[in-house]
């Protein structure tokens, strides 16, 4: 038998939080809650498994294709299980002018993974502007933000805490 999507506690969290989210929208506009609902799913599962998107679609009264369409449009939703840490390095213009390409190269060597690829531990991606241009270069690990990464030592210090 297939494993259930959620543990009982997760299911309870999902139900409670989704019910709260739905109060933000007109009663006949449940499908508007798609982005927060998919975010909630991902916060519980670490990614958006197909059966999770199906559940979201059912709860919001839309087709599962519609849920998949939305989940696949936005880069923050993971349709495949990512590494434990998703490392997003901004290489847009302001960061590149401050060395982001070299920083990315350093991380590829340090983490042993190419940009755009994943291991069990790491998913390394180039990302677009993270609005830290004044404190460039910057990166994001899962949802946490790190700025002013102007030296290898500073990068090493960020990663030293991750196991």
């Amino acid at each position: 038998m297939a494993e259930p999507l959620f543990t009982p506690e997760q299911q309870k969290t999902f139900d409670t939080e989704l019910a709260e989210i739905l109060t933000h929208y007109p009663p006949d506009r449940k499908s508007a809650a798609m982005l927060p609902a998919v975010r909630l799913l991902q916060s519980l599962k670490g990614w958006c498994p197909p059966e999770g998107l199906t559940l979201v679609a059912e709860r919001l009264g839309v087709t599962k294709e519609r849920a998949y369409e939305v989940a696949s449009f936005y880069v923050m939703y993971h349709l495949k299980k990512p590494g434990k840490y998703v490392v997003d390095v901004c290489t847009n213009l302001s960061c590149s002018l401050r060395g982001a390409e070299s920083l990315l190269g350093y991380l590829e060597d340090k983490l042993g993974v190419h940009a755009g690829e994943s291991t069990e531990q790491w998913t390394l991606r180039e990302t677009e502007c993270l609005a830290s241009c004044g404190t460039a270069p910057c990166l994001q690990i899962n949802e946490d933000h790190f700025e002013n990464l102007t030296s290898r030592e500073k990068v090493d210090a960020v990663f030293a805490k991750l196991k």
Partner: peptide, 9 residues
Amino acid sequence: PWGHFGDWA
């Protein structure tokens, strides 16, 4: 190509 800064030279 980027006229690098600091460590990233």
